[in-house]
């Protein structure tokens, strides 16, 4: 299964404080482990929300909001995409990650939707497939 691993922001990351050389190295070693285990698909770090923008939707309305955004601990400072067997494996890998921030911090793991997850739930894609199927059958 594919998961997105989100490194949450802190006051430091939002202030643009750069990690120490030691942390860079530790993170490099961790990434190396992920690569050698065939787990890491991609990943990157994000600049502070002061350099970000939001677009708020309300019906036809679109409002652009400039960063920084207030709810620091809910913001994302970086991410990976991993391929793992299950959530338990993802959790074990995250536990092995060096603390990405100076103080207390959080990493969140979110699985991607996959076809096998849908079961009986009808998604737009399945609905479209069903539509095409009906179209083909009725044309015969």
């Amino acid at each position: 299964m594919r998961v997105m691993v989100l490194v949450k922001a802190t006051e430091d990351s939002e202030a643009g404080v750069m990690p120490t050389t030691e942390l860079f190295e530790a993170m490099g070693r961790f990434n190396d482990e992920l690569i050698k285990a065939g787990v890491l698909l991609t990943g990157d770090g994000l600049k502070p929300s002061s350099q970000g923008k939001r677009v708020a939707f309300d019906g036809p309305g679109r409002t652009v909001i400039d960063g920084p955004f207030a709810e620091t601990r809910e913001l994302v400072a970086g991410f990976w995409v991993w391929e793992v067997k299950d959530m338990a494996e993802a959790v074990e890998w995250v536990k092995r990650c060096p603390n990405p921030m100076f103080g207390p911090s959080e990493i969140e793991i979110r699985p991607f939707y996959e076809m096998s997850d849908f079961g009986d739930v009808v998604t737009p894609e399945i609905a479209e497939q069903e539509r095409q199927r009906r179209e083909r059958t009725s044309g015969q």
Binding site: K85, A88, V91, E92, W93
Partner: peptide
Amino acid sequence: RAIEAIFRI
């Protein structure tokens, strides 16, 4: 399950 995951790694 956690131990299994560790073992798998």
